[in-house]
């Protein structure tokens, strides 16, 4: 009975695409939420453009965060960097107590307004779940498997590329998934520091007391988050198909 959820997702994607391309079609839906003849559809910019900018920001930050976090996690799990392992665990624990909004707000004094502080905040906050999950994936490998990889004569690099990373991939993907979902939300707040994101629509609604704007901005981000979350879940299932789907 996999068909129903898949259909629901496809329908959600189609609806989202239609809304971004032709928002005016949906005008009657949002009309009842407005007062005093206020516009029912966001009219201060293109919804599609904002959504793409939003996604681009999250994608760029997550890609950077993934590269750095995975590299760092690999480093501290090698003999050379083992000294840093306990500290890096503690730092991840501490780092995750920093609220995303605070990270965003604290980036502004350093780099000013615009997309840059948002990018930095998304990047920094995105590092933590990916680093933590990569660390978990690389340190909880079955000792028998690691031993076997050594015993078959793989070099350290071959072990990493052929055994350790593929086995950790589902856990790493779960970390990236979490990063992306948090990033989508944090990017929304990014519009308070003048980054071009869907948050603009919500903020405009909050400022002009226009619930229609708030709802459409919220819905776009929510549907995006759910779809992307599902996409990563499916990807994780492919990466972990060898486990018999138990993870």
């Amino acid at each position: 009975m996999r068909a129903l959820p898949t259909l629901a997702r496809l329908a959600a994607l189609a609806l989202l695409a239609a809304f971004l391309m032709r928002p005016d079609w949906f005008e009657p839906v949002f009309r009842p939420l407005t007062e005093n003849g206020a516009p029912a559809i966001y009219n201060q910019g293109s919804l599609l453009g904002l959504t793409l900018a939003h996604l681009g920001l999250v994608a760029l930050a997550t890609a950077g965060a993934t590269a750095l976090a995975v590299a760092l996690a690999i480093l501290v799990t090698r003999p050379f960097g083992a000294e840093f392992l306990p500290l890096s665990r503690a730092l991840v624990n501490i780092g995750q107590t920093f609220p995303p909004v605070a990270v965003l707000a604290l980036a502004v004094p350093a780099v000013g307004f615009g997309a840059t502080p948002t990018l930095i905040a998304l990047f920094l906050y995105g590092l933590l779940p990916i680093f933590e999950n990569t660390l978990t994936g690389l340190t909880t490998l079955s000792p028998a498997v690691v031993e076997a990889a050594k015993g078959t004569g793989m070099t350290a690099t071959q072990r990493l590329a052929r055994v350790e990373l593929p086995l950790a991939a589902p856990v790493i993907l779960a970390g990236i998934r979490l990063s992306v979902v948090i990033g989508l939300a944090t990017a929304t707040i990014g519009s308070t520091v003048a980054a071009k994101t869907v948050g603009e629509v919500i903020i405009a609604g909050l400022l002009s007391n226009n619930l229609a704007f708030v709802l459409q901005g919220g819905l776009i981000v929510a549907v995006l988050a759910v779809l992307i979350y599902d996409g990563f879940t499916a990807l994780g299932r492919v990466a972990g198909r060898w486990s018999g789907g138990t993870s």
């Binding site: 028998a144 498997v145 031993e147 076997a148 015993g151 078959t152 593929p166 086995l167 060898w242």
Partner: peptide, 12 residues
Amino acid sequence: YVIQGHGLFPHR
């Protein structure tokens, strides 16, 4: 080299 619990690569 054969070890206890076989150590097969689960992803292959």
